[in-house]
């Protein structure tokens, strides 16, 4: 936040000083010529300037606190350590999303290789003169399940990318500009409500939207577990495809299938079941994190913008007046 509004902090401060001087002149002239309305206007403007300055100061201080709160909610294993270095809340969560996206892409690549492996074995024939059999033909169901998970994972990657774009926009200087513009407009009584809305929108998107995302754990652990299972599956030498030269040798193919399925240490179908279960877990966690969480966060942010706009436009200043 401090980084986002640096440069604009000076503009906002200058606008507040202008507002204080105008208020001072209004109070003085109002008192001098006994114009009560002008004097009251000046007093109100002074309170509004104090509120503006307090919002500016709080926004900078709040940023660091919010990041700390978010970090407390997020387990150390979920977001890489280097994400916390000099990060604003949007940068912090963006780093975590990019990490999740990278892990998802790795898993997706492994899934395609696993599906290729399954496709290979499910069409493997054993010829016995008059008839032939496909002992692993039923792997089609696992292949379908992995295809479905793969589609979900790709859709989730698309959603992660969209969220990443939104966070990149929030991280850019534009939201600092909106915040400072809001402070400037809030200093002018005619545009106070619009200024309050801009401040509320900037604060909500810079601080509360990333905070809402931080409240939910990225599926990093599930993705890593699934990646380990798929890697173990893919690098298992027993499950490697039969060399082409042996494909016409029934005995070699049968021996291969026997070794993958019935030997003591290897269980191709069992490993595939564990793998597909893990992929389903990961894809569900990823779907929740990439689609449901941003929608919930956006809804909460929208509600916060409305509440903060009302508060900044009127309630906060009336509270300061009472104090």
């Amino acid at each position: 936040m401090a980084d986002l509004i640096s440069g604009w902090e000076a503009i906002a401060t200058t606008a507040i000083i202008i507002s204080v001087i105008i208020a001072g002149i209004a109070i003085g002239l109002g008192h001098a010529f006994s114009i009560k309305r002008l004097e009251r206007f000046g007093l109100d403007e002074i309170f509004q300037s104090v509120v503006n300055a307090a919002i500016l100061g709080a926004a900078i201080a709040l940023s660091a606190t919010i990041l700390q709160i978010g970090a407390e909610f997020t387990p150390a294993s979920a977001i890489p350590d280097n994400c916390t270095i000099n990060a604003t809340p949007p940068d912090y969560i963006l780093c975590g999303i990019n990490h999740t996206s990278y892990s998802t892409a790795n898993l997706s690549s492994d899934l395609i290789r696993v599906q290729n492996n399954i496709a290979y074995y499910q069409t493997l024939d054993l010829h016995f003169g008059n008839f032939s059999i496909q002992p692993l033909a039923n792997l089609n169901s696992v292949s379908n399940q992995l295809s479905s998970s793969s589609s979900t994972i790709h859709f989730s990657m698309f959603a992660l990318s969209l969220n990443s774009q939104l966070l990149s926009f929030i991280s850019s200087n534009w939201f600092g500009v909106i915040f400072a513009t809001g402070l400037v407009l809030r200093s002018i009584f005619l545009t106070r409500k619009f200024g309050a809305f801009l401040i509320a929108a900037a604060l909500s998107f810079i601080i509360f939207y990333p905070l809402m995302l931080m409240m939910f754990q990225p599926p990093t652990v599930q993705l890593e577990t699934t990646k380990n299972i798929t890697s173990a599956f893919l690098y298992n030498s027993t499950y490697q495809t039969v060399p082409i030269i042996d494909l016409n040798d029934n005995a070699a193919v049968a021996n291969k299938i026997y070794n993958m399925s019935f030997s003591q240490d290897q269980d191709y179908v069992g490993d595939l079941t564990v793998l597909s279960q893990s992929v389903t877990d990961s894809s569900a966690a990823l779907f929740f994190y990439s689609i449901f969480v941003p929608i919930i966060a956006l809804l909460v942010t929208g509600a916060l913008i409305k509440a903060l706009s009302l508060s900044f436009a009127g309630e906060l200043s009336s509270w300061v007046s009472q104090v």
């Binding site: 000083i17 109070i27 008192h31 104090v50 503006n52 500016l56 100061g57």
Partner: peptide, 26 residues
């Protein structure tokens, strides 16, 4: 007289009011 003094005082203290107010909610 009071109006004149108030204007001078507030204009002189404007910078201070702005910077002090920034620490209210911190």
């Amino acid at each position: 007289l009071i109006g004149g003094i108030v204007i001078a005082a507030i204009a002189a203290a404007a910078q201070g009011i702005a910077s002090t107010s920034q620490t209210i909610l911190q």
